[in-house]
Design a binder for these strands. Structure first.
Lengths: 234, 234
DNA sequence: AAGAACTGTGTCCCTTGGATACAGATTACT
DNA sequence: AGTAATCTGTATCCAAGGGACACAGTTCTT
């Protein structure tokens, strides 16, 4: 693996190129990818096996290997397809645009939580993933930040998006943070003395049903920090 | 799985409780965990199999099941042990303390990159992981931030730490960011028109060998943002 | 002394990713 | 048109990994 896996790059960036002889393929990469995404959305990425995906397409396991060199490439394909293309940003000014970008990206990870697992570690990035990054950098045009600053700012925001998306996974979508707090309180029972600050924080943090608080909180902090930098650079 | 897996909780939080009869166990949970960590550090978490860990301990695979109910619990154990206990923070004031905390935590993830994979998704948190969280919250004592604010601030910082740690994995440790940039430039070759902002940013971002720039950049932004909030709350 | 409880092990089974070989379909070339 | 090249889907086989289960040996309790 690593940043440059030839087969993965070819598949993600070049497709397969229609064959010139032989029978018509019954499937397309898009079909296979969509089938894999459906399985992953429903049962997690661990449930995505060649067998399972093949069944849901009505072919045998080995048929998939005519389209995809191996499972890791299939997962890479699924991941880029699931992330999708970045949206047009409509806000006025860098801050609303970047905020919108962040909320959209968060929504994607929320919809496909398994993508958090498949985008960790060194990997080949697909066109969609790079397009999202490009869109974030573009939103910072005209702020006076240089290329490295813009890249690092985008990376910081993505980190926050991913972190918050993780927390909510596998909780009823409307009270993820409360569920997490409750689980912590449960764990702390009997060990309160060992975690005094955390215990106190959890007691005072009776989050009043405000969904997405953690996300907006961190996003505001980061954007405030970027605004501060933009002010000094300007 | 989920936040409350009884067996995992018992193992992580209660240990095994010495048996009162029968032969002395040859191993301890700490031995097993350490062996697993050694394998994961050297060859990644994918190389951690029951077989492999057992071999490095000089026992058979099935012997491990006397200590650990299954592989997932072993990985949870390894993870909490690898993270270790949080350090004493020596800085003066919340900001230097939180910055030190962040750098220490980053160092742990850097040392055990596989822990990024094993701490994703819903899981049972171990005592060490909660201790780190407790330490971050404690660093924010006296800032006027309430419990929920402090928790969310900590979460935001952890997100950044994890994101940057991810990028550098599997690159020669002294130029991780440059390696990533180079890989992107390679991917963009021939598609520059589709990613104009990103292309421009990469061109201008001749990061002058400054290791860890991305980490310190984002950390500064987030801390600036928190400082801004502390100012308004105070 | 004797039974209870615990440890380490050998054997077996199921699932998964993947290699290989093969039969039928389709197209290009003569 | 006829044939050869090429492509598709499939059946069969293998190795690795997680885990269940039964068994023999060991040590503590009564």
């Amino acid at each position: 693996m690593g940043y440059a896996d030839g087969k993965a790059v070819a598949l993600l960036w070049g497709g397969r190129g229609a064959p010139r002889r032989g029978p018509k393929p019954t499937l397309t990469l898009a079909d296979i990818s969509a089938a894999g995404i459906a399985v992953a959305d429903a049962e997690g990425v661990a449930a995505v096996t060649m067998q399972r995906v093949a069944e849901s397409l009505g072919v045998t396991k080995m048929a998939l290997y005519r389209y995809v060199p191996g499972k890791s490439e299939l997962v890479a394909l699924m991941t880029d397809a699931a992330i999708g293309e970045p949206p047009e940003l409509t806000g006025d000014g860098w801050r609303p645009r970047l905020a919108e970008w962040a909320r959209r990206m968060f929504a994607e990870f929320w919809r496909h939580p398994w993508a958090l697992e498949t985008t960790i570690g060194p990997r080949v990035m697909g066109p969609n993933e790079l397009s999202w990054l490009d869109a974030a950098i573009a939103a910072l045009d005209g702020t006076g930040l240089d290329g490295a600053d813009a890249m690092d700012a985008a990376v910081t925001i993505v980190g926050h998006i991913r972190m918050v998306a993780q927390q909510g996974v596998a909780s009823p979508a409307d009270n993820a943070e409360q569920a997490m707090d409750a689980a912590m309180v449960e764990l702390l029972r009997g060990h309160e003395a060992d975690f005094p600050a955390l215990t106190a924080a959890l007691e005072s943090a009776s989050r009043s049903g405000k969904q997405g608080r953690a996300f907006e909180f961190g996003l505001d902090r980061i954007l405030d920090g970027i605004a501060h930098l933009v002010g000094t650079r300007g």
